[in-house]
Simulated assay, not measured.
Amino acid sequence: MSLKIATWNINSVRLRIESVVRLLDHHKPDVLCLQETKCPDDLFPEKAIKAAGYEYIEKSGQKGYHGVAIVARVPLEKASIKRFCGKEDCRHIQATAKGVEIHNFYVPAGGDEPDPEINEKFAHKIQFLEEMASWFKNAKQKTTAKRVVVGDLNVAPLEHDVWSHKQLLKVVSHTPQEVELFDKVLASHKWIDVPRLFTPEEEKLFSWWSYRSKDWQASNRGRRLDHIWASPAMDGMAKSVTTFTDARSWEKPSDHAPVIAEFKL
Rank of each mutant, 00 (worst) to 15 (best):
R83S: 10
T242C: 13
W229H: 14
V68M: 10
H92C: 00
L169H: 07
K78W: 04
S12C: 09
H160Q: 08
A230T: 08
A52D: 05
H174S: 07
L168P: 01
R14Y: 01
H160M: 02
W191F: 15
Y65K: 06
D112L: 12
E159G: 03
L76K: 10
S254G: 06
E201V: 13
L169W: 05
N220E: 06
V68F: 08
G151L: 04
F128V: 01
Q167Y: 09
M1R: 11
G111R: 08
F105E: 08
K239V: 06
I192L: 07
D215V: 04
P176G: 08
S2I: 09
N154I: 10
S219A: 11
S19M: 13
F263V: 04
G236C: 02
L265A: 03
H227M: 01
Y211W: 11
V241W: 14
K38P: 01
Q127G: 06
R147F: 11
A95C: 06
I118T: 15
K146C: 12
A139T: 12
W229L: 13
N220G: 02
L3N: 02
L205G: 04
E88Y: 08
R212G: 02
L129N: 04
W209A: 03
I118C: 04
Y211M: 04
A145R: 07
I70L: 11
R221K: 15
H26Y: 06
R224K: 15
N104T: 07
S173V: 06
V172N: 03
K87Q: 06
L169A: 12
